[in-house]
Design a protein around this nucleic acid. Structure first.
Lengths: 336, 336
DNA sequence: CTGAAAGCGCTTACAG
DNA sequence: CTGAAAGCGCTTACAG
């Protein structure tokens, strides 16, 4: 291949300065339209290619944001995280940043290996999508670039966490069940697995407490759907059943309906169900789960806005930002 | 923030040369272990951050690959393209490249706007994932960086296309149906929507021809599941039904089973079904569709390998590369 | 093993 | 509107 064409080459050919070429090509002011046109034409015909690295080098910023997602969150075809990832990327581009993607391997997480995008100095900041283990968390939070954590948080007031308002949303949703006459309400999830599940659980408990419902009784219907490590396991129904279940997510909710229907319980006639996430499934029997829809767009924008401010050294408070979701009513709850 | 620490700063502090610092930090030979250690420690304590842009600038390559996916392919939570994207990224990182993601908006596709990653000179090459419209295709294929197209092709022998072996796989799968005694076999898909669907259709037709099955008869059971533009539409069953359906993809296959079950036809007892993609669903009635699993990993690696060769000016032949999939037998076909 | 020198292609700040 | 000069932080190729 021939040698690379630079702005200097165009300048020489047209007998103008490199500065003028730069202004013309990058649509900056300070060039007459006539010369600008001539320069753009020359650039085209000479096969000029803009060198982004030179610019990044010059002004000391890559305009790249790294997005790190642990592999386990994106192994299945369906994943909430892909949608979040997409919305983050969308908004980044809107602000003239680029998304550089890194998949965090289990091994690198456990050994707390420094991310390649950092080691290679590829990005101005990082967004970590989804909870990571403690060692890895400690590694990345001490990195030399700003970082924002999404969809989980730690007890650390000097970092930025963007999460859905799990606690409050599930509190509202459980209250709704109670208003519909339910008092025997189980919970499905593993409250040690993630901060999100735990907070949803606590919102559920708060609603029980406020309504003088016996928590110990309801705990008989606490069913674990995954290991503490987050890995899914198949779960069994309890011997007796409550009149309603709060599921930590819709996926599990639909699985629950399946299990119930096979034992000839119908939803919502026999048992009511609420979930979280608003995945747009329907069972074959036509049941859609009443659920919470997380405002992913707003989460994505908040995360990016915070990160960009950190990069630009805008002083803002550290801490958790909770993004409020909305309840989506379907047909999985019956008034009793 | 203080000023940026450079290799030069470390060098000055330790009374060595910048060259030595560079060698030490980048794990190159030519430094004694003693000095290397000292340099690494100093880098740490001084808060040094490697400047990837400087390196890119210096050696004229960004080590970034752009991945472009049209927004319409990733709007739903579930998408084949996310998995392909993930595998491409995985392999890129394995080769020390980074993935820069760009979502192609419908508007930019229709107006054939130059990709931002190109305009900003961010990448050494591009992979386009999924079929794009003709104007956009013509734009990008004339860009100044190497480009590889995945999951579709055009009649253009001077470009690189990596596709699944749609034709041959569907030919095999249809033959299997015929071996199981089926002669009345319908097809669901829109053969004008994408090259993949069209080729699957042609593989199906080939099997019919070879087995002297009346094509015109089978065409009575050709059902369109989407518009020519690719947008999904809901479809109706034909008045009479064949004994088997070839579905252009599993998603549609599961939708078909749903429709059939609501009309009290059972799969595979009354009607057999085959699909494509091997999405790991099961109907509530416990049916899994016999299908083709595309070797996504191999597709991803092939695409990346070709692109990297183009970037390095390795002379290889242009054209289509078809990656063979495998048939996955489940329980949606009955011998009749 | 160690290092002096040159250069990658842009942009900024300033002068005319 | 136009442009001369300086400099961003590395790495390569070579000499000692």
């Amino acid at each position: 291949m021939g040698k690379t064409i630079t702005m200097g080459d165009i300048a020489k050919k047209l007998n103008v300065s490199t500065v003028t070429v730069s202004k013309a090509l990058r649509d900056k002011e300070g060039v007459s339209e006539e010369i600008r046109t001539k320069i753009k034409e020359a650039a085209n015909s000479m096969g000029y290619r803009y060198n982004g690295a030179a610019k990044s080098f010059k002004d000391g910023s890559t305009c790249n944001i790294g997005i790190i997602i642990a592999e386990r969150y994106i192994e299945s075809g369906t994943s909430y995280y892909w949608q979040l990832y997409k919305k983050v990327t969308d908004y980044l581009m809107h602000l003239d940043y680029f998304a550089v993607f890194e998949i965090l391997k289990l091994d690198d997480e456990q050994k707390a290996t420094i991310p390649k995008i950092i080691y290679e100095g590829k990005v101005d900041g990082i967004i970590i999508l989804g909870q990571v283990n403690n060692d890895y968390y400690r590694l990345v939070k001490n990195l030399s670039v700003p970082i924002v954590f999404m969809d989980f948080y730690e007890k650390d007031t000097t970092q930025d966490f963007i999460v859905a308002d799990n606690f409050y949303s599930m509190y509202l949703l459980t209250n709704y069940l109670i208003e519909m006459g339910h008092k025997d309400i189980g919970f499905i999830g593993n409250i040690k697995a993630t901060s999100s599940i735990q907070d949803r659980f606590l919102g559920y408990i708060k609603a029980l407490i406020e309504n003088d419902i016996d928590i110990n009784k309801c705990m008989k219907w606490y069913i674990k759907d995954r290991k503490d490590s987050g890995e899914y396991t198949s779960f069994e129904l309890t011997d007796t059943l409550p009149t309603a279940f709060v599921c930590n997510c819709d996926d599990i909710g639909y699985e629950l309906i399946n299990k119930l229907e096979r034992k000839n319980y119908n939803v919502p006639e026999d048992i009511s169900i609420v979930g979280f996430d608003n995945i747009n499934n329907l069972t074959d029997s036509g049941v859609g789960i009443t659920t919470v829809e997380v405002d992913m767009k707003s989460m994505a924008q908040t995360a990016v806005d915070v990160l960009v401010k950190r990069i630009n050294n805008v002083k803002i408070k550290y801490g958790i930002k909770q993004v409020t979701g909305k309840i989506v009513y379907k047909n999985s709850v019956k008034k009793i």
